[in-house]
């Protein structure tokens, strides 16, 4: 499935990122908030579920080539993070649901 399918299927809020980024293929998922763990464990193509919406999260998304960042439980998304995400073509989505509930539903679709 693509990031766009994810957005449509789960009515996700798109905080940042254009049509190009939305065409990326989602091949897996990773849940985590400690950036060092994510940095060394998340895989290319993952949908990364987290509450960390700061500027360093964008750096981690670029390093790991995840398909998108999905902020859970309406977590905050910083202004400087948005700027960095735009510069790097990182798509950032948001949902009011928690990571567990979202991950279960996303896993069913993959």
């Amino acid at each position: 499935m693509t990031v766009q399918n994810l957005i449509d299927d789960f009515s996700l809020e798109v905080l940042c990122g254009g049509a190009d980024a939305a065409q990326k293929e989602v091949t897996g998922g990773y849940c985590g908030d400690l950036l060092s763990w994510v940095m060394s464990k998340a895989q290319e193509g993952d949908c990364w579920l987290t509450v960390m919406g700061n500027v360093n999260s964008i750096g981690v998304a670029v390093m790991t080539d995840v398909a998108c960042i999905l902020l859970t439980e309406n977590a905050a998304f910083d202004e400087d993070a948005k700027l960095r995400a735009e510069q790097n073509g990182v798509i950032v989505l948001r949902s009011s649901e928690n990571a567990f509930d979202l991950a279960v539903k996303i896993a069913e679709k993959l």
């Binding site: 060092s36 940095m39 060394s40 750096g59 670029v62 390093m63 790097n88």
Partner: peptide
Amino acid sequence: MPPIKNRPEIF
């Protein structure tokens, strides 16, 4: 520290 290399273009 974990053996993660810096990516100067990001950090």
